[in-house]
Design a binder for these strands. Structure first.
Lengths: 232, 232
DNA sequence: CTATTGGCACCTAGGTGCCAACAT
DNA sequence: ATGTTGGCACCTAGGTGCCAATAG
């Protein structure tokens, strides 16, 4: 994922559906992004692979993206697809725009938090998400990404250009569709939720995620709460 | 004010500051637009005046613009300038976009409503604003306007073009500044709140509005609540 | 005749990857 | 050699009044 000083959106954006909330209870919904491991990476061209290149840089100020519809009733949240498309990433550790601060060349995992309103008094864009009984965290391992300031892999560039409406100016309509379609399939992040996935094994991420054998939908479950990723 | 089938913003937008709310109470804030009288108007060029041209057309479906930040705490509302710039007007009586429906060539008065959350169960974009103890309505007579589908008065056109950023393409930089500035002064709607105003006498609008003799600010008062118009 | 409509050129506002310059 | 930056052309999305055509 590209990160800049000014702040850059994630693409594609995380989109989820939620069920199992109390319709009449108020909730905040938030996202934060946590390191997958303690490593710094570099991209090795000749093998087309990310390789460990030392230990992670020192931690950055904690940031939380509170979904702009927050707070809202369980009914409201469950009725809509919850999109995080306005969330922005930055590599500026002094950022004052409330963007999520990350290190370049590191691996990260986005997390979705559901916070009962009465447990959200301590919720803040610049403090870690509070923990407790009324707070649940969900994550989808196939959404793990590596941060960069410039694309390392020409295929990722192609993918972004072809799927992001704002990059239409760079599209090459005479491009090899065969290669592109095959490539899309190989990146879980873009994969429609309706097909079978094999998850990467991400150390440190609890495997609460499941796959509905009938629909192929990816979902994450906690008590009676279910979060499901939706197609872009 | 221009109205179209697709919906058009008001320009300039209404902007208010509010004080006297209970900081911890939740409120909706909404706007509706009511007829000033029962007349239809036409513009007479040679006298540069709006003249009565018969009785008003039949009533249109009631519409309410609920401020998108609703509901929010009194504290939140009082901290910010409350802007109604996303509100749109239409002359399409079959509108399904939730825009406010008006007749062309009629005179209207925007109203701001402050609704305590527990009194807002009946609040809806397509129903009249509920009345009762927890609901207060404010209006500023200098914001009365006449609806059109095309500008009747070349001076209004000039004013809009020169003040609205989206109309920059029509600006004539070599234009008579003298005439324009004098014109701005003569239209109360644009006048900065910090100068003395003489209100037009609008029949049917209760005169709860006041002027602070020291600051010249226009404000509207109900119990301990005070609404004040802000400069654009 | 007057009032309305829809397509248009021209803006604002802001999200893309590119690329040459720069930093380390 | 590798990673980062800022200006840029090129988009999306949508708010202006203009104007010729149309409706009544």
């Amino acid at each position: 994922m590209i990160i800049t000083k000014a702040g850059r959106r994630m693409f594609p954006a995380m989109r989820v559906k939620i069920s199992g909330l109390d319709p009449h209870q108020q909730y905040y919904i938030a996202m934060d992004i946590v390191p997958v491991d303690n490593k710094r990476y570099r991209y090795v061209y000749h093998s087309s692979k990310w390789m460990v290149a030392g230990n992670a840089d020192s931690p950055v100020p904690p940031r939380v993206y509170i979904h702009p519809d927050s707070p809202a009733s369980g009914e409201t949240w469950m009725r809509q697809v919850i999109s995080f498309d306005k969330l922005k990433l930055t590599n500026n550790e002094l950022d004052d725009q409330g963007h999520i601060i990350l290190h370049s060349m590191h691996k990260y995992q986005p997390r979705v938090h559901v916070i009962r309103k009465d447990c959200g008094d301590d919720l803040s864009p610049i403090k870690p998400v509070p923990s407790g009984d009324g707070v649940k965290a969900f994550s989808f391992p196939e959404t793990v990404f590596t941060t960069v300031t410039a694309y390392q892999n020409q295929q990722i560039t192609r993918l972004k250009i072809d799927r992001n409406p704002f990059a239409k100016g760079f599209r090459d309509s005479g491009r090899n569709r065969m290669g592109l379609e095959a490539l899309v399939e190989s990146y879980a992040f873009w994969r429609p939720s309706l097909r079978t996935l094999t998850f990467e094994d991400i150390p440190g991420i609890p495997k609460q995620e499941c796959r509905d054998l009938k629909t192929g939908c990816i979902f994450s479950k906690l008590d009676n709460l279910v979060l499901r990723q939706t197609k872009a």
